[in-house]
Design a protein around this nucleic acid. Structure first.
Lengths: 215, 215
DNA sequence: AGCTAAAGTGAACTTGCGTTCAGGTTCAGC
DNA sequence: GCTGAACCTGAACGCAAGTTCACTTTAGCT
């Protein structure tokens, strides 16, 4: 799974010689990350480090060896999440650019997906807000915005999306979307918001919502 | 300002005889409430009781005399806020019902107002969520929903608002509206969401947003 | 097998916050 | 002005969570 030569210092680790990294250390680091992901998702970012450690089958000291402060742990987890989302969006863009899908429909699906993600992890945004503002998040978020912008631009040019819509708009909406509510409320929310993103709200309304005869 | 006969026990205070309530106690209670409102609004609901006390020019013990637990303080403040909002909405409804205003326009103004409130108090929702669910909030919130429902119903009957729109929809949107963002983002948010609340998004779009010739 | 540096362990320390309470203070009525 | 109950005060308590560190264990090498 993980070979001998792996990163250890997080984002910008570089040292003259990559001395050995013990296998148990790598294993524990992964266990901690996996556990923390789940714990934070279900119990919020206020889970104690002790509980995370216990759930990971590791002592607190070990946890602190890998992440000198709780902030570091949470930062890494959020960074993961952002990267995953960016990748997803980029894949969607690629699919649309290759003609394999329609921009505005994919955008709707994407928003729905993001809402689901947020709902499965209601505490993430809270956690992110509690973090220092100038971390490595900016560039990661930028990647997300860029991809979103691309997708929106295609839809705009196709005439299906609102002429003045931007990727930032979509981010604005999804970031403020419901996080602590059930699937029904999320769907309703999208049904309410969606028309505002279209060039003409009577067209292209694919799913529920207002009365629409031809779709 | 406050005469001899005033409430002291909060919501449902009733005793055989309303014995004396010292003037300094009343004064302090008000000072505490005023201070807490400000402190919570600016520093979030995590301000320590000590800081609130200090800012109010009072010892912690006094704070705890009036509010046996921090929860009680926050509860009262949120209750105040909800009541004020409910009153505002009811006034709007009355104005509309008397023919003094148009429902959908007032709804838009109302949503904007609620967003402003939330932005001036970004921590309130967080605080409310951290509270026990079955408090006296339910009936207060109900008052708000009822008023909203009435306003929306009028707009629906007038044909300006989306036929399937409910007061709960408006609550869903405003509750998830931007809280930590600037006025520009709030306006943009509303511009994006607003079309989805109208019967036909091309009509009655009063302000910014898409191209609209006759308004 | 033996060595050693890296990694792991968990009790203890620190800090911050909610809350209490014994004692001093003050308002209100006589 | 005197009395007593209500009120105020703030040091102290308890607790929970983040963090440290002296010591033990272990992986990787020879």
């Amino acid at each position: 799974m993980n070979a001998d030569q792996r990163e250890i210092g997080g984002i910008g680790a570089h040292m003259t010689i990559d001395r050995l990294t013990r296998s148990d250390a790598v294993r524990n680091r992964e266990r901690i990350l996996d556990t923390a992901r789940v714990q934070i998702a279900s119990h919020g970012p206020d889970v104690s480090m002790l509980e995370i450690a216990k759930a990971a089958g590791v002592a607190v000291g070990t946890l602190y060896r890998h992440y000198p402060a709780k902030t570091d742990l949470i930062t890494e987890i959020i960074a993961e999440q952002i990267d995953a989302l960016a990748t997803t969006i980029e894949q969607v863009v690629a699919k649309v650019e290759s003609g394999g899908a329609v921009a505005h429909l994919e955008l709707r699906r994407l928003i729905s997906h993001i809402l689901d993600l947020a709902a499965g992890n209601p505490a993430l945004k809270t956690a992110a807000l509690a973090l220092p503002v100038d971390t490595a998040f900016a560039q990661r978020a930028q990647r997300t915005f860029t991809a979103l912008d691309r997708l929106v631009a295609i839809g705009r040019e196709a005439g299906t999306l609102r002429p003045d819509l931007s990727g930032k708009d979509v981010a604005l909406l999804t970031c403020t979307g419901p996080r602590d509510l059930g699937a029904a409320d999320r769907e309703r929310w999208l049904a309410l918001v969606w028309p505002g993103l279209l060039a003409t709200s009577d067209l292209a309304s694919t799913q529920e919502g207002r009365s629409c005869s031809n779709c």
